[in-house]
Design a protein around this nucleic acid. Structure first.
Lengths: 257, 257
DNA sequence: ATAGAAAGCTAACATCCGTCAATAGACGCT
DNA sequence: AGCGTCTATTGACGGATGTTAGCTTTCTAT
């Protein structure tokens, strides 16, 4: 991790037109998606390792991840702990909007592009568009469900299975947002990153990666995972996608809108 | 844990009048609190070990904890994993309302009393009372913040510190809802429960409890923790209450309501 | 192309923790 | 009071993981 460029650029439009192919998409009509895309007031790029949002900050805008990976991290006793990872389409600091104060950092893993929506705009949205407000609430509930699964993973699995579970989850989440186009799963993660996500030392993460290769479950090279058999990997990790609520658009009562 | 009585009684009123001294209280005006209390359509009691909500269930009402402790649990491979614990005033299945399907069980730890609010009522509230809807969203965001801290705890601390951290968190959460009246912290937890919350075996949980006593940090007898020095315990557990957002009522823009 | 830095890998040893087995203590039921 | 069950406790052993140290590979900047 070497923080090189900070904010490469901050522009106002044009947007990609498709950056909301993320989590919200499942729960919104296309007109609402267009509506949200137009809320983005600026787009920023950040280099690997950049701290995009700092613990304790009181922000005036919320951030949606457009491209790349970010970590939720907490520093304690000189060490870093990763409590979550986010993919394009995820709002990464809606809690900063509602709780007014961030309790952890958000750090870029590799190059990322994010969009900013001011809190004033969000407040207006919450009032004018209950359907959109609801979708954002769903997204935070899904975050909580993923957190619970990470807790279970830490409580239940040994290091090789934790790493396998991490990649199985990422694979499924990428599928849900239509970003899987090969059998490989490419990430910018180092073994240090994997270690901090899985609650083991970097050296033990290395052992675990070696074991996955030895067992012919998967080969991980510089963050990129290659496997001939995703089902085998998922079985090994005891992965059950239930908690990702990937069953498609929720059947919602219309009287909500 | 022995499931004795299931539903001891299910009555419609009278309510305690003060069961909402919980998490929502911080963020709501008293008229809104009264409003929510009156949403409760029935009150139920459950005995120790009762599964109040089952994974996969599609509920027609949401549940608020009035008295006692409950666990969020996941069964896997014949073992039980606890991903969270809730105190009076917590909504324990708002995600069931929004996500339509529960991804884990909710189990009574000791005797509990819960209130039920139908989803139809909640939908009405979400539309009519944005302030109340907002407070419920806050509550779920706070759940997520607590989940993240549990992840960090599992990644960072050894067994004695995890148990100390658990009790430090409970102590603070009880303070926030005005339920601390002695230096002791009484819970119905067995060492099996502590083990399942901390991701260690029951035998190792026992060792950890013994170590806390040996180090003169705290004595835990049948779930009840006694200590002369809560600050020492919190320091040992590296407990920082930041993530509980206990700074009192949030300063919120009025234009939300 | 080269040098420096970051990342990956290996070995040795100590500690933490899981498992099994057995026992003791506490509580609820009759 | 007495019994059975749940809970707590202890010891022994092995596996999983942390730590330190050193080395190799790969990337990146010049």
């Amino acid at each position: 991790m070497h923080a090189t460029t900070d904010k490469v650029r901050a522009v106002r439009y044009p947007l990609t037109g498709d950056f909301l192919a993320g989590r919200l998409r499942q729960n919104l009509r296309s007109e609402d998606l267009t509506y949200i895309e137009n809320l983005v007031e600026s787009v920023e790029e950040h280099g690997d390792g950049t701290c995009i949002l700092e613990r304790g900050a009181r922000t005036e805008c919320s951030t949606i991840l457009i491209e790349g990976y970010v970590f939720r991290t907490i520093e304690s006793g000189g060490k870093r702990f990763i409590t979550g990872v986010h993919l394009p389409g995820d709002f990464i600091d809606l809690h900063g909007f509602a709780l007014k104060r961030l309790d952890h950092n958000v750090v870029a893993a590799g190059k990322v592009r994010v969009g900013c929506v001011s809190h004033a705009t969000l407040r207006r949205v919450m009032m004018d568009r209950p359907g959109v407000a609801r979708a954002m609430w769903f997204a935070t509930l899904l975050d909580a469900a993923i957190h619970r699964k990470w807790i279970q993973t830490l409580e239940q699995l040994d290091a090789p299975r934790r790493i396998a579970h991490l990649y199985a989850e990422l694979r499924t989440r990428l599928e849900l947002i239509g970003r899987v186009n090969s059998r490989a799963l490419r990430t910018p993660f180092t073994q240090f990153d994997m270690a901090d996500m899985c609650g083991v030392s970097a050296i033990h993460a290395n052992r675990a990666v070696g074991k996955l290769k030895e067992m012919e479950i998967a080969e991980i090279r510089r963050g990129d995972l290659y496997t001939d058999d995703w089902d085998l990997l998922k079985k090994f990790a005891r992965f059950d996608p239930d908690y990702l609520y990937g069953e498609g658009p929720l059947k919602l009562e219309d009287d909500w809108d």
